[in-house]
Amino acid sequence: MFSLDISSAHPLTAYGWDEAFADSFATHAGQDLLPGRIVRVHRGRVDAVVPDGDDVRTVSADTALVATGDPMRVPCTGDWAVIDLENGATDDADGVVRSLLPRRTAIVRSSSSKRSEAQILAANVNHAVIAVSLAAELDLGRIERFLSLAWESGAEPLVVLTKADLVDNPAVLSYLLSEAEAAAPGVQVLAVSSETGDGIEVLSAILADSTSVLLGQSGAGKSTLANALLGESVQDVQATRDQDGKGRHTTTTRDLLRLPWGGVLIDTPGLRGVGIWDAESGLAQTFSDIESLAGECRFLDCAHLSEPGCAVLEAIERGALPERRLESYRKLMRENQWMLAKTDARLHSEMRKDWKQMRATHHHMLERKRGGPQR
């Protein structure tokens, strides 16, 4: 029978097991069920680590019993599952997943399909490491997009500029760091090199004894960074294209890997499309500088377009806020509203009404400007 002991010697402690998860599992204790952390997801099946005496072992489990029409309840890497190895074994699986323990955090993006669905990339994560390659031009808008997902999840974001050895000039590297920091207020930004080892020790100390996930587009150097953090070549690595720094998906599954100094790391496939999914609070944190300035605007409903007394526009005029950042804020806020509208009929109706009003007002102003008929 599985013990709920949560001492440091417990075999699952190294994978993030603690008192709160033990409490969540308590209702299943004594039923020949085991807790297991999902380390990989296959179609209709997962691999999970479960206690095995004083150690752990990896088992496969069928997910048919927890498969629902709700994409937010689909088992994903990082989930803690209730696993039955006594009843449910098949030719393809050692057992079956009976249920999932409540998630603390979840990295969620809009599905890349045309349907309005969410996709969970990783669960129960403490740190979201956003990997950005310095082999290509720094895309600050993409950093802000990933940050919005990370903040919304409840995890603590961290921006890591990879391949720093490719930047020979210290002044240029310092400039790139400052640019990334300006796009990530309140977030730590590190420059690392998996080739030389620079910055790896600092990053390792930050991620120790926690669950972290690597996020980034193809070619960002996530798998190379994962190998550097693990101290061995576990993830396959492919070369990126010289002309744009992009690469193919080296990692094809989301793998949870145990770190040598404590904690676990989830490596994910490169993300070409990162859609926003109901990330209002994440956007507010990502653009906390704009949100703070907006509180000083003369009008409460200031749209930061041309209104008098707009603190945001004034900050842009005096060079305290890049105009690019305001444009990125508007773009992501529009995208978030569109996604909400697709899944919320009432909101969609309200937005259509607002748009009709805005078009009518715009048309009226144009007529006045041209000296046309006024009503």
Rank of each mutant, 00 (worst) to 15 (best):
S3P: 01
I6E: 13
A9D: 14
A9T: 15
L12E: 02
Y15L: 14
S24W: 07
H28K: 07
R40Q: 09
V46C: 00
G53H: 12
G53Y: 08
V56K: 01
V74F: 14
T77R: 05
W80M: 10
S111T: 10
S111C: 06
L121M: 11
L121T: 03
N126K: 07
E137I: 04
R142E: 13
I143F: 08
S153I: 10
G154S: 02
G154R: 03
V159M: 08
A164R: 10
L166E: 09
S174R: 14
Y175F: 14
L177D: 09
G186C: 08
E195G: 01
E195L: 15
G199T: 06
E201L: 09
S204K: 13
A205P: 10
L215E: 04
G216T: 04
A220T: 09
S223Y: 03
G231F: 06
Q243K: 13
R248L: 10
T253I: 13
D255W: 12
R258E: 13
G262I: 04
G263H: 03
V264I: 09
I266A: 01
L271Y: 02
R272Y: 00
V274S: 14
L283W: 04
L300D: 14
V312M: 07
E317H: 12
E323I: 06
Y329E: 07
Y329N: 06
E335I: 02
A341P: 11
A345D: 14
E350I: 12
M358R: 13
E367R: 06
R368F: 05
K369F: 10
